[in-house]
Design a binder for these strands. Sequence first.
DNA 1: CGGCTATTATACCGATCGGTATAGTTCCTG
DNA 2: CAGGAACTATACCGATCGGTATAATAGCCG
Lengths: 188, 188
Amino acid sequence: MDTRVALLSCALQLFAARGYDAVGVQEIVDAAGITKPTLYHYFGSKRGLLEAVLTPPFTQFNQQVQAAAVYSGDLPLTLKRVAEAVFTFARENPGFYRLQLALWFAPRDSEGFQVVSSLNRQAHDILEALFAQAVQQHGNMRGRQRAYAATFLGMLNTYAAMALNGYTQLDAALVEQAVHQFQHGIYS
Amino acid sequence: MDTRVALLSCALQLFAARGYDAVGVQEIVDAAGITKPTLYHYFGSKRGLLEAVLTPPFTQFNQQVQAAAVYSGDLPLTLKRVAEAVFTFARENPGFYRLQLALWFAPRDSEGFQVVSSLNRQAHDILEALFAQAVQQHGNMRGRQRAYAATFLGMLNTYAAMALNGYTQLDAALVEQAVHQFQHGIYS
DNA sequence: CGGCTATTATACCGATCGGTATAGTTCCTG
DNA sequence: CAGGAACTATACCGATCGGTATAATAGCCG
């Protein structure tokens, strides 16, 4: 069982650092100190390994976004909670978040995108549902739930990418700034 | 010379559809109807081919963003022009824009990111300079030029990615909505 | 102990990887 | 026409690709 975990850890690290396609199976098993048949015993294929690497943290991520996105009538507070949840997860799982971002923007026909798309779609749907609920209090948002979900997540991911490259830090101040900017724009 | 153009065209199409690492040199030359030595005569290496594919459209893109980003004291108008320039370019060069987005989010150690990073940085710097100028009229934006440049471009790219996947259209109405949302938030 | 399942290594598969040595062809210039 | 530069094909390089057949080992259950 330890071997399985070691494989997942090495694979995540290598995929995040150099890309799924650019990392060979041999390199992963070397890093884990084992041989190829062991990897194929556990995961069946390289794609299976990628799925096993991504699914658990993605499930956890979506759960935490879901928990943060329960709408109680206070949209600013909810958005802040969501931003906190996303930033916290990105900060605590930088390798996963890097990989997830890279695969989300990967070509549609690539294995990586196919594996990540449904998982990523869930987070989007959670946010879209949140904005759809908020429309009841904020009528003039009507019809833009999808755009808001996409741009809010896009903004959080932009900040997360900046942080992953050392340009900023995903702290409470950035949560505040991001949520404020998203709600009220750039002039105030 | 025609051969060179055919190679660039085939390479862009394949890279955009399936990813730089996932596409082999053999496949590119087959698609172009030539053989490998011809490719290596023109571009020297696979990386050189990628640079030749990306640099001209990227230069053109940055020029058009630069032209749109000249600040005449009217920030809303300038932002609208920039958004129009970005959307128009993405609409007219979907393959390039897809590839550029994918490589921008690719791992730092990957060849693709290294090739695209400096080119992409230029667009960011143009926007950062724009916001730095605008601070003179809009003092309360002070200190956030970098964040605004990143999030404005991030928002435009989010919409561009949505459009590339068929979820929206990069038309004048979307320009209006994006610029309005960026300036005034989601409530109005 | 016997037998069973899970796990792991050795050694190998055909295919493809990026890249090149050699030579032929074409075309422009003197 | 001679000669050189530009271009392109045949055929090949060692390395690596994802994946596997075989078998040895290990631990558990009876």
